[in-house]
Amino acid sequence: MEKLKLLIIQPQKIFLETEFDDIIIPGKDGDFGVFYGHTPFISVIRPGILEIYNNSEVTKCAIHDGYVTVENNIVTILCEVVEKADEIDKTRAEAAKERAEKRIKSNQDEVDFRRAEIALRKAIARIAIS
């Protein structure tokens, strides 16, 4: 199978540059996969887990935001926060999860609620892969 190229770019650095067979990306409207020959495509990313399959290896990253473009079998992800499993502080993530849950339960106005929901998603993604 032919390989695709992946570039994950952060404002501070290039996070990852690699080749892969298949990738699962948490899009705003749901997770989607990209194989070789995908049509040109832009999507916004929601907080979740990014899974990169290469040969039989899987790399998982927690991603918080950003957008992805697919063009000529090059997948480019631009995001501000993305972490590999060994970079995550699990206790901090768990504390953040509790905080977010409390905020959701206290049922404040809509803006706060949405923010808490995003924070909760981020925390869950972090905990899931760490």
Partner: peptide, 26 residues
């Protein structure tokens, strides 16, 4: 640079919004 026609998801407006956000930050 190729000016390809992209498929937008969720929609063009959301993509522009996200891009603008990122653009100002950076």
């Amino acid at each position: 640079v190729s000016l390809l026609d992209y498929l937008y998801e969720p929609g063009e407006e959301e993509v522009i919004e996200e891009l603008t956000n990122k653009y100002i930050n950076v």
